[in-house]
Design a binder for these strands. Structure first.
Length: 530
DNA sequence: ACAACAATAT
DNA sequence: CATATTGTTG
């Protein structure tokens, strides 16, 4: 009970027989995964923290040595590694099992945060950060990235003595989820007494037994249930496949073949396809049009299809942008299809245009490639986007940057349709920012954009800016609407996805907002790491 | 509590 | 394979 109260103070309300159940689950787990865990649970749970398998990473020899000594002093079973990549390799190889990872933050090559992130993506392991840097921002970064603790460097034994709690806590939450499933089964199949159930379990009976085996093996490998993240990239492949086959003929297996992505199964695709079809129905409930029409418009729809997804990591991550609930968009969608198709772009572009992209890597697939290639973790397969990215990073201030040209185009096409003061937004730099800032160009663009579309409303402060402005991007109250933008797309892009350009425009604005917010609210360059 | 997503069951 | 249900997450 002591543990319960200290480790799980905020846990969801515990089921009735919480303690009993937890204990039972733990016993089960120990029994099942015995091969791998013999070291402890099996033997005696009371001296649990002993032998905790800790993987410690630090590039500094001395620190590492000290750490090792301390860890041993705590009777853990430490494995020391000098760099993150090796650590990752070991974890991936899965040859040795670990209960916890302890990593320094500042390391050459791959830093602790990256390691943390990859571990979070690929496996279910508590990670504790170590650093001399005790400023709040750094700590927050660690926490945001999913670290379960952040210890200041020089580390003391007392601190290390406690780290096992994280392991236990995690294990426990696993146990709880198993437990609830067990409960369900029990209630459904035979509402017998607890004792009886326990008996039946030890006998390892047919149905329940197999189930549990599956679960426990999975749990014992410490691999997460591979949950596929349908990133933009993946989804694009998916769409490509569907377009080749034809929506009506598209079936999971065929799609799988065409997509040629090794981390996907037929089921994954089936699931996604299901969601996709539901989505299409939602957007176009009465689409009785012929195939070709459907194809074309599906192109549009597909863009917004993805936009609900990846927000989980996204808002947590760099830039400190407040999260826009994806629902925000859908909730407002009474405004109609037009908005529907455009609003999505915002989200999509957020993902494309900003550094966030690195969170969107389909995990199993290319964590490897990802880890190997240092800088831009993914290459967006779309040429335009690459260009944008380049522009974004290399030629901000140049007079011929993409931004500038876009601004010009926008100016041109929107002449006369927008209030006269619009022009000033294009030419003047936003008041808050120094005119020498490299992001200047984009800054003004975004401001322009939002203001343009918002011309009817008032945006008085930046804080309104981020929400109001974004929504305002889409619904254009009068006939002036997209007309100002679409022609531009056509003239500049001859790709199959004219919306990409629009997308990219938004990408800038989103990124800008990020920057603006950063500068104005956070003051320093937030969490963005090189 | 709820919605969206993805896995899993039918 | 399509569809329904379940589990997980934010």
């Amino acid at each position: 009970s002591e543990i319960c109260s200290s480790v799980l103070p905020t846990a969801r309300k515990p089921p009735r027989c919480f303690l009993i159940e937890v204990r039972r689950s733990l016993e089960n787990m120990a029994a099942m995964g015995g091969n791998q865990r013999q070291t402890m649970e099996d033997a005696a749970e009371d001296k649990f923290p002993e032998g905790l398998r800790v993987l410690a990473v630090d590039d500094d020899r001395v620190c590492l040595k000290v750490l090792e000594v301390l860890l041993r002093h705590c009777k853990y079973q430490p494995t020391m590694v000098m760099d993150a990549k090796t650590a990752l390799k070991m974890l991936r190889a899965g040859k040795e099992q670990f209960d916890l990872v302890l990593t320094d933050v500042r390391m050459p090559d791959m830093d602790g945060f990256k390691l943390l992130e990859l571990i979070g993506l690929e496996m279910d392991l508590p990670v504790i950060m170590l650093s001399v840097d005790c400023n709040k921002k750094a700590v927050m970064k660690g926490i945001n990235h999913g670290a379960c603790d952040y210890l200041m460097k020089p580390v003391h034994t007392n601190e290390l003595k406690n780290i096992w709690q994280h392991v236990e806590s995690r294990r426990r939450s696993q146990a709880i989820s198993h437990m609830s499933r067990d409960n369900d089964n029990n209630h459904r199949v035979h509402p017998g007494t607890l004792a009886r159930n326990k008996d039946s379990k030890t006998k390892s009976n047919e149905k329940d037994g197999s189930n549990e085996n599956k679960e426990s093996t999975r749990a014992s490998t410490t691999q997460k249930n591979t949950r596929v993240k349908w990133t933009i990239e993946l989804h694009n492949k998916f769409l490509e496949a569907i377009n080749q086959i034809g929506l009506d003929k598209a079936a999971p297996n065929k799609i799988l073949e065409l997509m040629n992505v090794d981390c996907l199964t037929r089921h994954n695709i089936a699931s996604h396809l299901q969601k996709y079809r539901l989505y299409l129905n939602r957007v176009k409930p009465n689409s009785l049009g012929d195939a070709s029409e459907r194809q074309n418009s599906s192109m549009d729809n597909q863009r917004n299809f993805m936009h609900n997804h990846e927000h989980e990591r996204w808002h947590v991550s760099s830039c400190g942008i407040p999260s826009w609930s994806p629902n925000y968009f859908s909730a407002t969608s009474q405004l109609g299809q037009l908005m529907d198709s455009q609003s999505s772009l915002c989200m999509g572009s957020l993902i494309h245009g900003s550094r966030m992209s690195r969170y969107l890597v389909p995990h199993t697939l290319d964590a490897r490639r990802f880890a190997g290639s240092e800088d831009p973790p993914i290459s967006l397969d779309n040429g335009i986007l690459d260009d944008i990215m380049l522009d974004e990073f290399s030629s901000y201030s140049s007079g011929t940057s993409y931004v500038d040209s876009m601004r010009d185009k926008l100016m041109e096409t929107s002449k006369g349709k927008t209030p006269s003061n619009l022009r000033s937004y294009f030419t003047n730099t936003p008041s808050g920012r120094g005119s020498s800032a490299p992001t200047n160009g984009t800054g003004s663009t975004s401001k322009t954009e939002t203001n343009m579309f918002n011309s009817g409303k008032t945006i008085s402060t930046l804080s309104n800016f981020q929400t109001d402005g974004f929504i305002a991007l889409t619904p254009m109250p009068d006939g002036g609407d997209a007309a100002g933008i679409l022609p531009v797309q056509e003239s500049m892009v001859n790709q199959q996805e004219p919306n990409d350009l629009l997308n990219d425009i938004n990408a800038f604005s989103s990124d800008d907002i990020a920057n603006l917010l950063n500068d104005d609210f956070i003051g320093e360059d937030a969490v963005v790491d090189g």
